[in-house]
Design a protein around this nucleic acid. Structure first.
Lengths: 195, 195
DNA sequence: GATTTTTCCTAATCTGGTTCATCTTTATTA
DNA sequence: TAATAAAGATGAACCAGATTAGGAAAAATC
């Protein structure tokens, strides 16, 4: 029998909850398993839950008109994942969220979260803080895409997230960094030659 | 004598505040005027306030190693502006925030906001909601940069924000959309020829 | 209202990264 | 363990958009 304490721990890095609150919150959390290549979210369906990753790796991506994939985000242990727009506006998703490995998740539904905001106002603060940090992160990412070349972006990502580079397929990484998989091959090859 | 009611109205689109709360909140708000070409925020200095635009237009931009400018955001009437990362982490800014026209702003300091979160917990909800929306917006922008050509991005921006296009210099717009000002000229010329 | 500065346009050349087509290697599954 | 599918590598041709350098127009300043 598994438990939801990883999420409680996560939240309590930002706010503190008493025993009752923890209990109450826990009653809204659900454990979910998903196998590699399965989809957690699909375009057209409203994204009803956000998922905390206990174990595994996923990615959120868009398929454009020409069928090309663009990865918005990766998620490994201790990260959250969803189609964010779909979740907060409760409108049909445009993204896929796909398991890149077998995953163990803890989920909370949109409706539960709204209820929890009323019952445990502290959670508003928690959500505010992590959303602010995500936003700052997105700003940085956008600027990095503007100011750095493909190769520089790859180097930086490798430096910051070697773990992710090891675990995700190369085409997913290329589509996250905003260039073609062939070009990533070329970059890697260039580096291998140099060193 | 000017007043701070535009900000109160803005906030009350999302939450409701009683008379006392409005009064209390107002006591933390400051009116600020700034002339065209002046800077509200500069790299190296901690961004201490966020600013609501009553009148005018501004942009937040980064100057990269080669001296090129990259615009992260525009702000006109009824928008907020700051160096967001600098503000939330209270660390030195990396961005400039510059007035593109003479501006009339209402400001609130980082410290005041922290105090207000304690005194008026409803404000946590307000901040949570608008941050969530900003984040969804940023996700969309990033994906649009990945999936659309320079010309498509320009068309879309023109359709959504004709007002901004009219008011900001072209080099600022190009640097927001992520391409060179010369290329924007080329796009515009191409269109003029066609129609 | 003349001068200086800033913004905008044009056109030629160049390049970082894409596309397309084929091949090799590595995972999956039967 | 053989068969099949998925992922990665390689190279040639190509293109969207950058760069450079010039001039024209508009706006700000005196």
């Amino acid at each position: 029998m598994e438990n939801v304490s990883p999420v409680l721990d996560y939240i309590q890095r930002y706010i503190s909850l008493n025993e009752d609150e923890q209990q109450f919150l826990s009653s809204f959390l659900q454990i979910k398993k998903i196998r590699k290549k399965q989809h957690l979210v699909q375009p057209g369906f409203v994204c009803t839950h956000k998922s905390y990753v206990v174990k595994g790796a996923l990615r959120a991506y868009l398929v454009d008109r020409e069928g090309k994939e663009h990865t918005l985000a990766f998620a490994i242990e201790d990260w959250w994942v969803s189609d964010y727009s779909s979740l907060i506006y409760q409108q049909p998703a445009t993204l896929f969220v796909e398991a890149l490995e077998d995953c163990s998740l803890i989920q909370i539904s949109y409706a539960s979260e709204q209820e929890l905001f009323d019952k445990i106002p502290q959670l508003e603060k928690f959500e505010r803080i992590i959303t602010q940090r995500s936003l700052a992160f997105q700003h940085k990412r956008l600027l990095e895409n503007f100011t750095h070349t493909a190769e520089e972006r790859y180097d930086e990502f490798l430096r910051k997230y070697p773990e992710i580079v090891r675990r995700v397929p190369q085409y997913a990484l290329a589509s996250y960094l905003g260039f073609s998989t062939e070009y990533l091959s070329k970059i890697r090859n260039r580096k291998a030659g140099k060193s």
